[in-house]
Design a protein around this nucleic acid. Structure first.
Lengths: 219, 219
DNA sequence: AATATTATTTAGACAAATCTAAATAATAAA
DNA sequence: TTTATTATTTAGATTTGTCTAAATAATATT
């Protein structure tokens, strides 16, 4: 089946919003894709026609098994390109998403399998997300939470949700980047600030606002 | 200026057909892009509006200086991706064109400059064509002719114009690939067949039809 | 349960890129 | 130079993906 870029983006977003098996609403999908609910309804009819989704009007959207297969292929392409951009072209993790967003639409099984081999068949991308293999199999996503909600002591940074230059500059100054390991020393109830320590650095205190935008997982 | 993929393909084809300064006709461009003359006329109006081409009705098309700049950028992207596919992913020269055709439309100056660095800033692509630098400067295209019209004795294979599997299989069997050096032993006037010799191989005779589809340059 | 609010869909329109068929211009042939 | 041929353009239609505004369904509130 030959999908347009628009159709691929819909499938990918539905997969993302489903998180397992939840039904995706028209409005949620419109918000995710930065489009209008009416457009989503139009596209839902097309994707149903192509048997990529299950859809009955007013009942929401879920991927069919074929839709899931297609979504995993797209995610595989996206995450492999992210690896390439970071490992080979030395991009930083905050720059890669939008580039991978374009590269992922080049549909060639052979290209992707060679790219994967070339990268050493990685199983997680630079954000710590698992990469589906050629058959769509992938490891369970790592349990990721924002730093302000993490309850483990020893953590590793997996992503930053706010891409503002102000935050990135702050993180840069504090030597916090993707893969940085840190230890939570204390939570201060008064303002919900958090004291953390990086190896070979003195402990620092960060605000709740910053902590909310740093994604971590236990290490 | 933000161009669509369709617009980029038109600009690239006009550049290709111009070969210096020739005026490109509506029909020639339609044939090149595998579309209809009426569609070319429509697009010509749009590209003129965007000041990428000079166009007056019934007078044909030429690129403006801005159009030439854009064309060279696209060609740069295309040829760098071809280098990547061959050098890093071990694709063969007959597979890379259509992949590069898609990759070239990812528009990021930073991506392309890093890719170029990563590849060692190559100045010719796997077909022997020169790669424009970031400012659009590029070496003169090498003098390329089809094997049946070459007058030099010692030649190197730079491209194959017919991508049919039959021809590729034939060339494979005879150990002829991109970069293969060969020597012309004789032209037979009777059927215009050509006798050639590869290093460490016995001389072989190839038909005019095959020779017409092998591009070479003097070595 | 009736009403208000929110979510979703339909109807109709639009822009981009294409097409076919018909009209017109340019060029070649008689 | 008139006629025939070929090239190009115009007019109007089509497809894809989108939109706005209005209508309808589902859900929440009083």
């Amino acid at each position: 089946m030959n999908l347009s870029i628009a159709e691929e983006n819909y499938v990918k977003s539905i997969y993302k919003l489903q998180e397992g098996d939840a039904v995706v609403t028209t409005n949620a999908l419109a918000y995710e894709l930065e489009t209008k609910p009416a457009s989503v309804t139009d596209m839902a009819k097309k994707l149903k026609e192509k048997k990529l989704i299950d859809y009955e009007k007013y009942k929401g959207i879920t991927l069919s098994s074929e839709g899931r297969r297609v979504a995993l292929q797209i995610i595989r392409r996206h995450r492999l390109w992210e690896c390439f951009l970071v490992d080979k072209l030395a991009f930083s993790w905050e720059e890669i998403h939008e580039l991978a967003e374009e590269l992922e639409h080049v549909r060639s099984e052979k290209l992707i399998s060679r790219l994967s081999d070339y990268l050493g068949n990685p199983v997680i991308d630079p954000h710590g997300d698992p990469i589906p293999d050629a058959h769509g199999k992938m490891a369970k996503p790592r349990p990721q939470t924002s730093l302000d909600q993490a309850n483990a002591r020893r953590l590793v940074v997996t992503a930053v949700t706010d891409q503002s230059t102000a935050l990135l500059a702050f993180l840069n100054a504090k030597n916090i980047k993707l893969g940085t390991q840190l230890e939570v020393i204390a939570h201060y109830e008064y303002d919900n600030s958090i004291e953390i320590k990086l190896k070979q650095h003195p402990a620092i205190t960060i605000s709740e606002q910053v902590a909310r935008n740093i994604m971590v997982r236990p290490v």
